[in-house]
Amino acid sequence: MTIDLPVRHGKVRDIYDLGDKLLLVASDRTSAFDYVLPSVIPDKGRVLTQISRFWFEKLGVANHMISINVADADLPSGTDLASLDGRSMLVRKTEVVPIECVVRGYLAGSGWKEYGQSSTVCGIPLPAGLDQSAQLETPIFTPATKEESGHDINISYERMCEIVGEELASTLREKSLDIYTRGAAFAREKGIIIADTKFEWGIVDGELLLIDEVLTPDSSRFWPEDQYQVGVSPPSFDKQIVRDYLETTSWDKNSTPPQLPEAVVNQTRAKYIEAFEELTGQTFPWK
């Protein structure tokens, strides 16, 4: 899809500049191990956009969403609106806060690895004797820098204060913990555990807004509650199927990735759609 407007292409999303607004277009591109894969996951972008819309509407937090109706973007004549349907969000342009606001409610991923070495997660001491995937007594806030390429870098809360100031850092921590707590409680009622997540924030006219995607399978770790158990890494609703497949290949993670088999593509698409339907209680419109 091509629109005759200034655009910034990310790994999986295209951001079109409309002056004081942006059009965020979530593509079906997928990435793994810091590479964009040659295979796409059909409708992945629509799932992520529609889950974010659901949360923006439900959470009651000031956010950047204006509309998910692509016709409201007033795009150049001849633009293929059908290809943008469902995967596009018209948003307010903000000054992006240069911090990933990560909240962790369970011991997983890099947090689990660090805990095994030092009984800490991002430098925060945790009780001894916790098992993999254990729920933390209270969620913890672990900020990271926003990197243009590669992985974001975990930083201390004190370092975050140095970057954005103590007042803003405190507000971001409080709001991020609140949104995660409320969102995770709702998702749990729907049979989904949100183990951890990351939020992004922006400022416009002095107002702090929740931006980017929110509590999606790509920005969060979604686990099916009925398959959750402490001591193992539960299956997830995201592209873990893709990662698991790539681990079985001879790909060296330092060159062009291989094509995905059709079965892996179909299974991954089905998982994304399942996450949308279980979370929202709605039928995915683009089946």
Rank of each mutant, 00 (worst) to 15 (best):
Y245V: 02
G111Y: 01
V265S: 04
V91T: 08
L279P: 10
T181R: 12
V102C: 12
I192E: 04
N63R: 06
P224H: 01
F276E: 05
A128F: 08
K253F: 10
I15E: 11
C161L: 09
Y245N: 03
Y245E: 02
S236W: 06
R13K: 14
I155R: 03
V103H: 04
Q259T: 04
F237D: 05
V102M: 09
D226Q: 09
E174P: 01
E225V: 08
A128T: 07
P224S: 02
S31P: 12
L23V: 14
V91S: 05
W251C: 13
L81C: 02
G129L: 06
T79N: 15
P6V: 13
G116N: 09
I179G: 04
D85P: 04
D205P: 11
Q240D: 02
W286R: 14
E162P: 08
Y35C: 01
A108M: 07
Q240P: 01
Q282M: 11
P234H: 02
N69S: 10
S236K: 08
D80K: 15
T197V: 02
R8Y: 03
Y157T: 15
Y115S: 01
V103Q: 08
G231E: 07
E162A: 14
Q132S: 07
G78C: 12
A185D: 09
S119F: 12
S39A: 06
Y157C: 13
S233H: 11
I3R: 10
S133I: 11
S118C: 09
L130R: 13
V204L: 15
R92F: 05
F222R: 00
A185S: 09
T145L: 15
G183T: 06
F33G: 10
E213A: 07
E277M: 05
N63C: 12
T248G: 02
D34A: 11
A26V: 04
S170D: 05
D212A: 02
P257R: 10
L23W: 12
I273Q: 14
M160F: 09
P139T: 11
T120K: 13
L208M: 13
R29F: 06
F54P: 07
R53Q: 13
F56V: 01
M1R: 15
T79V: 14
S149N: 15
K93T: 13
S110P: 09
G165E: 07
V47D: 00
D17M: 09
M1Q: 15
E137Y: 06
A82H: 10
W201D: 05
L168R: 03
I179A: 04
T256K: 15
V102W: 11
G183K: 03
L22V: 09
I241F: 07
S149M: 14
D212G: 01
T49G: 07
W55F: 00
Q117A: 08
C101Y: 00
